[in-house]
Amino acid sequence: MEILITGGAGFIGSHVLAQLKEMPDMDVVVFDNLSSGSRNHVPDGMELIEGDICDEEAIDAVFSDHHFEAVVHLAAQTMVPVSVEQPVLDCQINLEGVLHVLEACRVHGVPHILFSSSAAVYGDNLNIPLVETERLAPTSPYGVTKMTTEHYLRVYHELYGMDATVFRFANVYGERQGEKGEGGVVSIFCKLLSHHQGLTVFGDGSQTRDFVYAGDISQAIIRALPLKGYHTMNVSTGQETSVNDLIHSFEKAVGHSVDVTYTAPRTGDILRSVLSNGALKENLDFVPAMDLEEGIRRTYEWYQGQWAQ
């Protein structure tokens, strides 16, 4: 099976590639501009094409040279603050770029596209655990582009018969996150603790998130490759974890207590967030299994290894 992974040299993509390299029946092509990814993430034997999804001609050339049976679209502008500060840039990458990929799939007859959406499409909704049928009310341009892409995928399925799978990721963490950028709270904490610095928490630490390991995200994506039709699934643990509980997991990983400074909450931060994973279990017979303490230990040890080099 020949598949294309856009953004495959990035954080989540690197975990997907690591699992795919153990599957000899998979012929994998990676398309990435390496702005936040690294060619070191692409295993030997996989083709890496350096290019940008905003370059329509480059996208078409890749599809013309291959016969993909599925496209996993991970290439994106992923930072909510960047989308707030530069909404036009966010739109160019996360909508115009997506449309270039979708059109290439349509024109070249690719039957299935799998898309990395986000919990950001739900906005600040306390009807938790959130299910896929909840009203979508994103509170950032980033969330708007993810929601809009979901609608494009639905329409492409209805108009052109393209199979489409939408994954709404919870708070993803794991090795290699934020190598060239800020990343999420886990990667920020990893970097600070690896440099023997204390942590800063906005608010009292009672705010919650649903932390899902990138390796579990990768398993969900790979399991969904044969899916037919149009599907929307949260990829989550379904477990609510406070920032204070997250810090306790870090203390176990580092082997000692850590210094924490609590400061004023940030305007617009969501207080509670957890996603239902019922649809994931129903469609793929899969639920993320990584224990948070083990996942944090693996992630922290990877960061320690990076700074020791």
Rank of each mutant, 00 (worst) to 15 (best):
K146V: 00
G198M: 12
E282P: 11
M290F: 08
G183I: 10
D25I: 05
V107K: 13
V235M: 11
D32I: 01
S194H: 08
H73G: 06
D285A: 12
H100P: 03
L17H: 04
N125Q: 07
L284V: 10
T145C: 08
D90W: 00
T299L: 03
K228E: 14
W302R: 07
A220T: 00
V98E: 03
V42Y: 01
S273T: 15
F189C: 14
F63I: 01
T237V: 09
L17A: 00
A264L: 13
Q219T: 15
G7Q: 02
L48I: 10
G305R: 02
C91P: 00
L48T: 03
A61M: 03
A220C: 09
V72M: 11
E50L: 06
G305C: 08
S140V: 04
V172R: 09
S140F: 04
G174M: 01
L292G: 06
T139Q: 15
R168H: 14
R135K: 14
V274S: 05
Q19T: 01
V243E: 15
A289N: 12
Q219S: 15
N234P: 04
V121R: 02
L89R: 09
P141L: 05
E251S: 07
P43Y: 09
Y142N: 05
V42I: 05
G51N: 04
P87E: 07
I5K: 12
G161V: 02
V243A: 12
T237Q: 09
R106V: 03
R209E: 06
K146R: 01
G7S: 04
A58L: 01
S35L: 09
D285G: 15
T133Y: 06
I217V: 15
S273Q: 06
I5T: 01
L102K: 01
G183E: 14
